[in-house]
Structure formats: structure tokens, C-alpha cells
């Protein structure tokens, strides 16, 4: 697992831009890879390279839905340590319940206001980052730590 890497699956241009801007401000050390659909992210998660610490997932996308992606991830043992955060403006409680039942770790509201949007993402990354740090030893010598 690569602790400094997160994947974002999001099909809306505006949200991709906002997520990129928000994370680069609050977590400049985090490397973000964007995917436009579930179909696009699946081969990358299955390619045998270290998977990211966290996957941020839109729920309503054309083609394979976010819920389908959660189910696909949780069916793979090699992705057990991957934190899946559903980031959506959906108000449907049944969708939230379905995502948790499928194995999502978080179901986070996507706010309209950018300050709030940035805060929600920053706190989500902080929370799951801390959880990751409690089980993963700190990295060794690195130029990032100079």
C-alpha cells in the first residue's frame, strides 16, 4: 500500500477540479490519481502495483455505479486494506445503507460551498490518515523528511 497516494473516481469536471484544488491545499504531500469511471479504476487497482491508502468514490456515474465499484473492491482480498470513501451529494438514505452494507468505510456529504468542501475532504483524509498511521510504521529516510 502507498500511504501517500489516493485514487479519486469522479466523472464531473467541476468536482475533479474542486477535489484536486482542495487536496493540494490541505494535503500537499498526497499524490492524487483521478479516474473518470469505475471501469477505468478497476484495472489500475488490479495491476499488482501498491494500491493507494484511500479511494474517494462518486456514487452516481454513467456505466458502473459507485456501489458496483465498492462491491468489486470488497470481493478482492488483495484490496482489504483500501479505505473506500463514498463522496456524494445523494440524499438517499437507502443508498447510504447499501454502500455501508457493501463495505464502504465512509459515506460523506459533498457540500456546495468550496470552503466546506475543502474542510470535509481535509478532515476525511486526516481521519483515515491517522487510522493508517496507527497500523503502519513511519517511513524511513526520505528526502521528503528533510
Amino acid at each position: 500500500m502507498n500511504d501517500d497516494l489516493i485514487f479519486v473516481v469522479e466523472d464531473t469536471d467541476e468536482d475533479v477540479e474542486a477535489i484536486d484544488r482542495a487536496i493540494s491545499r490541505s494535503h500537499p504531500d498526497v499524490q492524487v490519481e483521478f479516474f473518470r469511471s469505475g471501469t477505468e479504476v478497476q484495472p489500475r487497482l488490479a495491476d499488482g502495483t501498491p494500491h493507494p491508502r484511500l479511494l474517494l468514490l462518486d456514487l452516481n456515474m454513467p456505466g458502473e455505479s459507485g456501489l458496483d465499484v465498492v462491491r468489486w473492491i470488497r470481493a478482492r482480498r488483495d484490496l482489504d486494506g483500501l479505505t473506500v470513501v463514498v463522496f456524494t451529494s445523494s440524499e438517499d438514505q437507502a443508498e447510504a445503507d447499501a454502500c455501508y452494507a457493501a463495505g464502504a468505510d465512509s459515506y460523506i456529504y459533498k457540500p456546495l460551498n468550496f470552503a466546506l468542501f475543502q474542510s470535509v475532504l481535509a478532515q476525511t483524509l486526516n481521519y483515515w490518515g491517522k487510522v493508517a498511521r496507527t497500523v503502519v510504521p513511519p517511513p524511513g529516510d526520505s528526502s521528503a523528511h528533510t
Binding site: 440524499e91 438514505q93 465512509s106 460523506i108 456529504y109 457540500p111 466546506l116 474542510s119 470535509v120 478532515q123 476525511t124 481521519y127
Partner: peptide, 16 residues
């Protein structure tokens, strides 16, 4: 629905 929206707005923006 209102009672669901209140905590959904607050988490994780201001509380875990």
C-alpha cells in the same frame, strides 16, 4: 429526513 441531514452536514466538516 431533517434528523438525518443534521449529522450528515456536520460530519466530518466540524466533528468526527
Amino acid at each position: 429526513q431533517t434528523m438525518r441531514r443534521v449529522p450528515r452536514m456536520a460530519v466530518p466538516a466540524i466533528a468526527e
